[in-house]
Design a binder for these strands. Structure first.
Lengths: 228, 228
DNA sequence: CGCGATGTTGAGATGCCTCAAATTCTGTGG
DNA sequence: CCACAGAATTTGAGGCATCTCAACATCGCG
């Protein structure tokens, strides 16, 4: 069985999700769960497997998506260090339709449904963090709806690049495939747009890598914040 | 100042949102708030007004939407009797971008941010209801993203009609304008599709009214549940 | 009765997907 | 170290779904 270090706790303490929580509470969270490592490209949960466990990524990256009947995949969420996955799972009918896959080797803190419910009961302060997080997720989903309904592909790709830049810095380690699954378009359209941006000197690219030079040029014009 | 009746409480007791809560708790909720009536077409909250109040619709109907710069409007949510609006508002940075408007004369139970937070603290059991509701909202938003990304307009309109039928029965009292603002399309496309459905005998229409005869024909094929 | 909102239908414009072919990169195994 | 397979990128051309615009019919309300 793997173990966690004080350093892992430090990282969580500084993270946005855990804002306002004491170090003691966060330690207790680690105690309530166990650390698991998934190799790259593992499916952490699949559709219909009644996944009720809550995960916190310690290192690595998790992609939450859904594969549709037409063979297309849509990415809802990218979960990075110190971010939670399936926060609401233990409270919901577990027949949800998302799947989660690791994009790198990923260490997670895994907490069973029961332990999670107990933990929340014993530390109700964390409810504020949960509700804040979910609220942001909801706003993000609504923003994406707005974008899909009324923005053109180029604008959406711009937004996605800007958002990913905020979250992951530069360079971005994503292929056009992955960008397009977030923006809701095809790899071809993504590459065409990125070609233009390259000509304008706003970004430069290499296979699987995107450097953003002029992040201001990607800035969103409309209200509504994406999180991804 | 308006008042509530035992009958109002009864209605809430039977509603989906309040499942598992005792009559006493629901009574307390009424005591913590006050009853307000808004005339038809009133803006209950507008963009940028830092609306932190929580509402429960007692009778009438609320439309939660956002108007974009291009003059188009997109409907996120329809709130009917015994459903909540702005459940997360008191927990979030209040600069959200939604607006809520009454579609009929609407009586609401209005609870200030402070009273709401107190109430949740004193009756933590309601947290389960809140999380369940928000979770469904999140799943619904994700389903709509999926639909927008890969379904054609006709399918989306079908889905919207089916969903509205589940929620409001028949006939539906909506114009093509309102349907299109939910489905993410134009009134023209909506009317063309409804014209086809009419020819097939699945629905019949009158100005502002839609009767659904064959609800099975509208049934969704894919996973993922809409709520609206 | 007339005005504004809604419904109806058509034709044209267009953004984007789809398909296809060629090129470049990366990692793997001989 | 090289050859090769597979994946990612690049670019072009064609087609299609849907929006847009426009004209007209209809309904309901004051």
């Amino acid at each position: 069985m793997e173990n966690f270090t004080e350093k892992d706790i430090d990282v969580f303490c500084r993270a946005s999700f855990f804002k306002g929580l004491s170090r003691e509470i966060i330690s207790n969270l680690f105690v309530a769960g166990k650390v698991v490592t998934f190799p790259k490209n593992t499916f952490v949960s699949s559709i219909g497997d009644n996944f009720g466990t809550v995960l916190f990524v310690i290192s690595g990256l998790l992609r939450v998506s859904v594969g549709s009947s037409s063979g297309r995949r849509i990415t809802f969420l990218l979960v990075k260090t110190a971010e939670p996955y399936n926060l609401l799972g233990p409270y919901l009918d577990p027949s949800r339709f998302l799947e989660a896959q690791t994009l790198e080797n990923t260490r997670c803190l895994e907490i069973t449904s029961k332990n999670y419910l107990d933990f929340v009961e014993r530390h109700p302060i964390i409810i504020h963090n949960i509700l804040r997080w979910i609220g942001m997720g909801l706003d993000c989903a609504n923003s994406r709806l707005l974008d899909l309904m009324e923005k053109k592909v180029e604008d959406r790709i711009l937004r996605v690049l800007s958002t990913l830049h905020n979250k992951f810095g530069s360079p971005l380690l994503f292929t056009s495939q992955e960008i397009s699954e977030i923006a809701g378009t095809t790899p071809e359209s993504t590459l065409r747009t990125m070609g233009l941006l390259r000509q304008m000197g706003i970004i430069s690219t290499q296979r699987g890598k995107i450097w953003i030079h002029d992040s201001a040029a990607l800035k969103d014009t409309e209200f509504g914040r994406l999180t991804i």
